[in-house]
Design a protein around this nucleic acid. Structure first.
Length: 679
DNA sequence: CTAGGGTTAG
């Protein structure tokens, strides 16, 4: 039995009872031992303990904190260690709170180890005010000539993009090391002064890897990716950050081929390399590549970070791969990823965009401290799914909880009003945004307002709003007006809107389609063929309709008229069955909107029947078990006929059919659609 | 006996 007591401590040989403990590998064992032997609050022992905790891989920061909280008189060393740990673990805010604690109640003064940590924390948090106060403290305590303290101030001001202050500190330093030079260079880069950064780079007598990387990063951030590559090639040595900076440079200009080339050349990669590739692919619309890399990194044993998951979820959202999304979600649950920040928002958005609004709601409800982003995402999601009442209820609940909405929240709110045809509410919230929250409406807000008015048939008023708004109306706004003109058969306004769209984007196919549909709806066949001629002349072609459906973990893609699917025979067989069942309930196909130049009625009917979503629905009916909703993602707007047919099918086959089109969700159930026939 | 500031993704 060990016999170490507090009274025996002053003797140096007894200071380290741990050394006689066999295999002192577990800090927790040592902690227990020191508690038992009443040596726990000896300053040297507590310091050593906390240091052991920081070096132990198994411990978490929260555990470290609980140990720290038991010390009666933490040493300066213990304070410093804990503050540093918070900064290193990206919990800078808590480190500043702890620092405040330290200043007010420790009775100690910060030293040259404390200050760089908290200065770094201020930089990370963009805490300009606090940073200035700490700078004042540095001055008062006389650390004006400490290399580390001053160097970290240069770094902090660089992060604030306050290059003037950074330069001032830099100029006052009596000696400067490489790190300080690098910080200042990065400050110039962040300030957009690439030339000045390069001058500094040339002035430097000593350059290690970081200096070069800052230049690669700086050049690629201002679009000079070729110059960045030159620097990259000239570098005497490179580390992960250098490669990653170059990869991101290529990704930024959309050159994912070159980015991939570098990625494949790398023998070793770090998780940021993978994150850069996944985020890059995702930004460039190459979602399937992004997802492939995610699977690959897991197989290779890399541990995804929050950013990995955010980018991956985003790629899943765009491709609407619900089953993949569910798998990532379960990975997150198993690995205890917290949903309190952006990650929670991404998860909610993924479920919304993949058509599972119920799960999105469940995730939302499970988040304990809901932030503005969570509220905004679920409100917008419910809006696009046609659940306006719930969306607006949640908005009011959010206000009750004193969460302040921003411009994006109001887009969601207005979208919800729009989908439910709530004209008065829409106007009211638009004004509330301006008056109560001092938010300047953007084009998007006006777009929502115009859409709300259009949907309710107030086309003249919508036109007035467009003409009197202080911003230049964009394509989307004119498209809402055009779309409404088609539904309300207001040819004159429709032509006016179409003309404006064409002025903004002469090659925008959707406007021709809508215009032609409007003419068709009003029996104006001459003009239908004139639009067709115009399309032929400008050379714009209608994107082929394309629908996706997931089955057994694979995406099945159907293009209009597609006969390449292995189940084609069964699918067309199902389609003829569908035709019969539709006939038996008295359904007459709506051939008015067939855009292709087809003469015969039967041919027109065949054209409609081979629309991509029909193929996908037929495949869904064959392959998916009864009771499972059929989820389809479509690239274009749903045509009138498909919309009516799908409503019938949801009743005839007693199936929920969820279709995501280019701007909203249609939930078909018991013969009706959540969009209330306006889209 | 132990400790600090600079680059890359989101």
């Amino acid at each position: 039995m060990l016999q170490v007591t507090a009274s025996s401590l002053p003797s140096k040989s007894n200071l380290y009872p741990f050394q006689i403990y066999k295999n002192p590998t577990e800090p927790a064992q040592l902690l227990a031992l020191s508690l038992k032997t009443a040596t726990f609050n000896h300053p040297l022992i507590s310091s050593r303990l906390i240091s052991l905790y920081t070096h132990s891989k198994s411990t978490t920061l929260d555990h470290l904190r609980s140990v720290f909280d038991q010390f009666q008189q933490p040493t300066l060393f213990s304070w410093n260690t804990l503050i540093k740990s918070y900064v290193q673990n990206q919990r800078s805010q808590e480190s500043l709170f702890l620092f405040l604690d330290f200043i007010t109640r420790s009775g100690l003064m910060p030293d040259v180890f404390t200050l760089p940590c908290v200065i770094k924390a201020c930089g990370r948090l963009m805490a300009v005010k606090e940073g200035g106060q700490i700078h004042g403290l540095v001055f008062k305590l006389g650390f004006g000539s400490d290399l580390f303290v001053q160097g970290s101030l240069v770094g902090m001001y660089s992060k604030f993009k306050d290059i003037g202050s950074a330069r001032k500190v830099f100029d006052q330093m009596t000696e400067r090391d490489l790190v300080t030079w690098n910080s200042l260079m990065d400050g110039y880069v962040k300030d957009g002064e690439i030339e000045l950064a390069m001058e500094l780079f040339d002035e430097m007598t000593e350059r290690d890897v970081v200096s070069w990387t800052v230049m690669v990063d700086g050049l690629s951030k201002c679009g000079r990716v070729d110059d960045a590559r030159k620097v990259f090639d000239e570098m005497p040595r490179r580390n992960f950050a250098s490669w990653n900076a170059m990869i991101n440079g290529y990704m930024r200009v959309g050159d994912f081929i070159s980015a991939r080339g570098l990625f494949d050349l790398m023998e070793d990669k770090d998780i940021i390399t993978w994150n850069s590739m996944i985020a890059g692919y995702e930004h460039n619309g190459r979602c399937s590549e992004a997802l492939k890399l995610f699977t690959e990194l897991l197989n290779l044993g890399y541990v995804p970070t929050h950013s990995t998951l955010v980018s991956t979820l985003s790629a899943i959202s765009w491709s609407a791969l619900l089953s993949k999304g569910r798998r990532v979600h379960s990975y997150m649950v198993k690995n205890d990823h917290k949903l309190d920040g952006v990650l929670g928002t991404s998860l909610i958005e993924m479920y919304c965009k993949c058509g599972s609004i119920e799960t999105a709601l469940k995730v939302f409800e499970s988040i304990p401290n809901k932030k503005l982003g969570h509220w905004t995402t679920i409100i917008a999601g419910l809006g696009t799914h046609g659940q306006a009442t719930l969306a607006l209820d949640l908005f009011l609940e959010m206000l009750k909880m004193n969460v302040i909405p921003n411009a994006i929240t109001f887009i969601g709110v207005l979208t919800a009003c729009n989908h439910a045809g709530l004209v008065e509410d829409g106007r009211r919230y638009f004004n509330m945004m301006i008056k109560d929250y001092q938010i300047e409406p953007t084009v998007e807000h006006y777009g929502c307002l115009v859409d709300i008015l259009c949907r309710a048939g107030h086309l003249e008023e919508a036109k007035n709003v467009i003409e009197s708004m202080p911003l230049k109306p964009n394509k989307v706004i004119w498209m809402s007006l055009l779309s409404a003109s088609r539904i309300y058969k207001k040819v004159e306004i429709g032509e006016y809107a179409a003309q404006n769209v064409t002025e903004i984007d002469p090659n925008f196919i959707e406007s021709y389609v809508l215009l032609s549909n409007m003419y068709a709806a009003t029996g104006n066949w001459d003009k239908v063929s004139r639009v067709r001629d115009a399309m032929r002349k400008t050379g714009v072609k209608k994107d082929p309709g394309c629908s996706l459906i997931e089955y057994r973990d694979e995406v099945h893609e159907f293009i209009a008229g597609d006969k390449s699917h292995p189940w084609t025979r069964e699918i067309y067989h199902k389609l003829s069955e569908i035709r019969e069942r539709l006939k038996s309930v008295g359904y007459v196909p709506d051939k008015s909107q067939v855009l292709l130049h087809i003469e015969g009625d039967d041919e027109k009917e065949t054209e409609l029947e081979s629309h991509s979503e029909r193929l996908a629905i037929a495949f869904g009916l064959i392959s998916l078990k009864p009771g499972i909703p059929i989820r389809i993602v479509k690239n274009l707007r749903v045509c009138n006929d498909c919309h009516s047919v799908t409503k019938h099918l949801s009743k005839i086959y007693d199936r929920e059919i969820i279709v995501r089109d280019s701007s909203r969700f249609h939930h078909f159930k018991h013969g009706s659609c959540s969009c209330m026939d306006y889209w």
